[in-house]
Structures are given as structure tokens and as C-alpha cells.
């Protein structure tokens, strides 16, 4: 038995991860000195665990805010207690209310106000994105809407190697009252991320730029006549590398 194997047995014994028969056999193989060392190791490990387990509790305010949210009640906590995602949800709701009131009074279609909800909402989950896609694949959606873009093969190297996993969920219409906005939905490292698209110089494109100015869009890029922007809490600008302009067809 080499040192490494002996080391693993030693640790499994220390952690109580051996069967009774294995533990008994291992125990018999120990010298009196080793047995003493193991007992001391166990006391040391227990002492370390006791210290790591001490002195931390979930703040009541944090839990109550979360509980209220789960129960569908308004959260009533100090504003400095809960940051993202609860605080951002509150801000988004407040901003959405302001925008609604503004439009109901003014009745215009300006894009001067900051887009803070719909396509630029970072607080949606992967499950919600899946619902939004309704099982429509990206290529299928692009074809249906005559969008001259494609999603690159993920197996190709696009400089996104630090992301653990990337999955294209699908695509859907964006939430834009003044023109066409499209969304390509991804799960990146287990987190929801969207790439919003609008034709160059359209109102949708202006909306994306505005959202970027307000920090709602991580990054933008022009791709084949479309402005693309990344939306999500998880930083994944590299998803823009996956959207490509379709090569012009030779007739």
C-alpha cells in the first residue's frame, strides 16, 4: 500500500466513512501511536468544525423579505438589507410604474425614458426564458422572421472557454412598443442571459442603446445589420461571438 492509499484510508477512517468491517480491519493495522494521533486528529477536526459552524445566522430581515416575496406579499424591509435580486426587482417595479404613468399622461411613443423591464429585465429565471421561447429554436425563429443571422456552432472556439456551459434555449419576440425587437435566450453557466436584437437605426436599436446607457445591457455589437445587446446578471458578453451574419447567398 502506497502513501496515497494509506492517506485515503486514514481520512476515510477519520471521517467515519468506512464500513464497520473496514474500520475494524484498519483499526487493527494501526500502531498504538497512530491510534493516538488519529484520536487527536479527530479532536482537532471537530474543534475546527465547531469554530466554522459558530457565530453566523441568517438575518431575520433577509429571511422575512424573501418569505414575503415567496408568499406574494410586498416586502417590508430596510432598503440596505437586501440587494440583488430583491432590490433590483423593487427598482424595476417602481421604474415600470413611473413609465406607465408617464405614457398614460403623455400618450407619446418617445424612447427617451430608460427601458427597465420586459426585454431588459435581468431578474427573469431560466425557467421563465424557457416559457418565453415556447420551444421555438433560434434558427427556426430567424427563418420565420427573415432575420439574416445565425447562431454559431458552440463547439467552435469563440473565446468563451471560461464559461462552464452554454445552452441556446430558443428565441422570441422582444418587448418593444415602437418596433421590432427580438430576443435570443441562453442559459450560460446555469444563469439566464438574453441577447436582444434590433435592426440597425430602428427605434428598437435606440432602445437597446438607451438601456445600455442605463446599465441594463452589458455590451452591444453590430452584427450583419442588427444591433445586438447582452442582458443578464451573469456577465456573458462572449455570447455576442456566437451570433453571426448569414453569408449572402450566391444566385
Amino acid at each position: 500500500m502506497n502513501q496515497n492509499e494509506r492517506e485515503k484510508l486514514w481520512m476515510a477512517y477519520l471521517d467515519g466513512q468506512m464500513s464497520a468491517a473496514e474500520a475494524s480491519a484498519f483499526d487493527e493495522s494501526l500502531t498504538a501511536e497512530e491510534r493516538e494521533q488519529l484520536a487527536a486528529e479527530m479532536r482537532l477536526e471537530a474543534g475546527i468544525a465547531e469554530r466554522l459552524a459558530a457565530k453566523v445566522a441568517c438575518p431575520d430581515a433577509t429571511w422575512e423579505a424573501l418569505r414575503s416575496q415567496l408568499e406574494g406579499k410586498p416586502a417590508t424591509v430596510p432598503t440596505n438589507v437586501v440587494r440583488l435580486p430583491l432590490r433590483s426587482l423593487g427598482l424595476i417595479a417602481a421604474a415600470a410604474a413611473v413609465v406607465l404613468v408617464f405614457y398614460s399622461v403623455r400618450g407619446g411613443d418617445t424612447v427617451d425614458s430608460a427601458p427597465t423591464s420586459g426585454s431588459f429585465d435581468s431578474a427573469v429565471s431560466v425557467a421563465e426564458l424557457e416559457n418565453m421561447a415556447h420551444g421555438v429554436g433560434v434558427e427556426e425563429y430567424f427563418t420565420q422572421h427573415n432575420i439574416q443571422l445565425a447562431v454559431a456552432d458552440f463547439s467552435e472556439s469563440h473565446g468563451h472557454s471560461h464559461h462552464k456551459t452554454i445552452r441556446a434555449i430558443g428565441a422570441c419576440d422582444g418587448d418593444c412598443p415602437y418596433g421590432s425587437l427580438y430576443e435570443v435566450l441562453f442559459e450560460c453557466c446555469g444563469e439566464p442571459v438574453r441577447v436582444v436584437l434590433a435592426e440597425q437605426s430602428s427605434r428598437g436599436a435606440r432602445m437597446i442603446k438607451q438601456a445600455q446607457a442605463h446599465g441594463k445591457v452589458q455590451a452591444t455589437r453590430m452584427i450583419g445589420g442588427y444591433l445586438a445587446g447582452v442582458v443578464g446578471i451573469h456577465h456573458a458578453e462572449e455570447l455576442l461571438d456566437l451570433i453571426e451574419a448569414k453569408p449572402a447567398q450566391v444566385t
Binding site: L52, A53, A57, P59, T62, L84, P85, L86, S125
Partner: peptide
């Protein structure tokens, strides 16, 4: 309490514990 303590001990920056806890519970809920 044990979930929260685990986050505080695991995160490099323990000031993100509230965010991580909330985000994890909401993800579990969904």
C-alpha cells in the same frame, strides 16, 4: 441559518451572502 452560514464561509466575499442566499432560494423556488 445553516444555509446562510455555509454561504458566508464559502464565499470569498462574505458581504455577498444576502444576495447569494436570496438568489439561491428564489432559484430553488422556481
Amino acid at each position: 441559518d445553516e444555509f446562510y452560514r455555509y454561504i458566508v464561509r464559502t464565499a470569498w466575499d462574505s458581504s455577498v451572502a444576502d444576495d447569494v442566499f436570496s438568489s439561491a432560494v428564489l432559484a430553488a423556488w422556481e
